[in-house]
C-alpha cells in the first residue's frame, strides 16, 4: 500500500510556516479569522463547478437531507459580512468534483478574505503585499504587472476579446494548433475565450512575476459586479504566477435581484448542459436583500502558493496525501 505521504517533511513544515505567516499578516491588519460550515443545504450554481454531495440523517426526514460540500466559503462569509462582521478571512478546505490534475486536487486549501470598503485596486495591492511576503523568501520576483483582459489578449493572442468575432477566436486557436476541440460548440463565445486564455495566454502570464489580469468580459462576471461602459466589464481579477492561477478576486455583487437572476440563468445553463440542478442559496439572497456592505473579496489557492514557495512542480507534492492516497 502507498501509505506514505507524498510531501517531504520540509514541505510540510513550510506549509505550517506559511499558515502562521498568513495569520500574523491578518492579525496585524486587524482582519478577523472565522470558520464557516463546510456543509451546506445550498450549492454553487456555476455550471463549470460540480459540488460533492452527502446525506444528513436524523434530520427528521426519512430519506435524510442532501447536503453539499462547499466549493468555496464565499456564501457563508458574505452572510457574516452582511451581519456586520467587518473584514474577515478564513483558511479552509474547498471541494470540487472531478478536478484532478497537475495543478488540481478535488479537495484543496483556500485562503479567502473580504474587505468592506475596498475597491479592486486596493484589494490587488493587499494580495500583492501578502503574496510577496510569502513567496519572496523562497523565489525572486520581478516587478508586478497589471493587465486588463483585453491587453492580455492583444499582447499574447493578437486580438481584441470584446470585439473579435467567434470566427476570429477559432482562427486564432487554429494558428496556435489548438483549433480542433471536441465538444466545443461553434457559437460558444466564452468557451473559445476560455480556450485561448487557458491554452495560449495563461501559460505565458506571470513569468517570475505576479501578473494581475482584470476587467473580464461581463459574460464571465461570476459573482463580481459589472461596470457599465463600452464594453461593460466584470469588476474581477485573477492573479497568475509562472502561468498558474493563484487567486481570483471580485468587487462583490451586492444587488440581490441581480444575484438571483444570475443564479437562475446558471441553473438554466446547467439544465441545457445536462448537469444536475442544485438548490439556490436563499440565505445568501436574504443577506443581500438585508444589505451587504460594499466590499471586495478574494480567494487564493494555498497549495499552489506552497508549490511555488517550495519549488516543486506538481500540486500533489505539496499535499501529504493527494486524492489517490486519500
Amino acid at each position: 500500500m502507498n501509505w506514505q505521504p507524498t510531501a517531504t517533511a520540509q514541505i510540510l513544515s513550510l506549509r505550517a510556516a506559511l499558515l502562521a505567516q498568513i495569520r500574523g499578516f491578518f492579525a496585524a491588519q486587524q482582519v478577523l479569522e472565522v470558520e464557516t460550515p463546510v456543509l451546506s443545504g445550498a450549492a454553487n450554481t456555476d455550471p463549470q463547478i460540480e459540488s460533492f454531495t452527502t446525506n444528513l440523517s436524523g434530520s427528521g426526514k426519512a430519506p435524510g437531507r442532501t447536503l453539499y460540500l462547499q466549493t468555496s466559503p464565499e456564501f457563508p462569509m458574505k452572510r457574516l459580512v452582511a451581519a456586520g462582521s467587518g473584514p474577515i478571512y478564513q483558511i479552509c478546505r474547498a471541494f470540487r468534483q472531478g478536478e484532478t490534475g497537475r495543478y488540481h486536487n478535488p479537495e484543496f486549501t483556500l485562503l479567502e478574505w473580504y474587505r468592506p470598503g475596498f475597491n479592486l485596486q486596493r484589494l490587488m495591492n493587499e494580495v500583492e503585499q501578502l503574496a510577496r511576503l510569502l513567496l519572496e523568501p523562497h523565489m525572486e520576483l520581478d516587478n508586478s504587472e497589471r493587465l486588463s483582459y483585453q491587453q492580455a489578449f492583444e499582447h499574447y493572442a493578437g486580438l481584441n476579446p470584446h470585439h473579435a468575432s467567434i470566427k476570429q477566436l477559432v482562427g486564432c486557436a487554429q494558428r496556435h494548433g489548438t483549433g480542433n476541440v471536441t465538444g466545443l460548440a461553434e457559437d460558444d463565445r466564452d468557451g473559445w475565450l476560455n480556450l485561448l486564455m487557458s491554452h495560449i495566454i495563461q501559460p505565458q502570464l506571470g513569468q517570475q512575476r505576479l501578473t494581475f489580469v482584470f476587467d473580464y468580459p461581463a459574460s464571465q462576471a461570476a459573482l463580481a459586479r459589472i461596470r457599465p461602459g463600452n464594453p461593460s466589464v466584470a469588476d474581477r481579477f485573477e492573479l497568475f504566477l509562472n502561468g498558474v492561477e493563484l487567486a481570483n478576486g471580485f468587487h462583490e455583487l451586492t444587488d440581490a435581484t441581480e444575484q438571483r437572476n444570475r443564479f437562475v440563468s446558471e441553473l438554466q445553463q446547467r439544465t441545457l448542459a445536462g448537469k444536475p440542478a442544485v438548490p439556490i442559496d436563499e440565505q445568501l439572497l436574504s443577506a443581500l436583500e438585508n444589505g451587504l456592505p460594499d466590499c471586495a473579496g478574494v480567494a487564493m489557492g494555498l497549495d499552489r502558493l506552497l508549490m511555488f514557495a517550495s519549488g516543486v512542480t506538481t500540486l500533489g507534492e505539496t499535499l501529504c496525501f493527494p486524492i489517490d492516497r486519500a
Binding site: 463549470q48 494548433g177 489548438t178 476541440v181 475565450l193 476560455n194 480556450l195 487557458s198 491554452h199 464571465q220
Partner: peptide, 26 residues
C-alpha cells in the same frame, strides 16, 4: 486545464496505433 472560472478542458496527446504518429487534441 481549467481557468479559475469557466470551461475546463482536457489537453491530450495520443498515439495513432496504426501510424505511430503523435496527435494533440483538446
Amino acid at each position: 486545464v481549467k481557468p479559475g472560472k469557466g470551461q475546463a478542458f482536457n489537453r491530450v496527446k495520443l498515439r495513432n496505433l496504426k501510424t505511430g504518429r503523435i496527435i494533440e487534441r483538446t
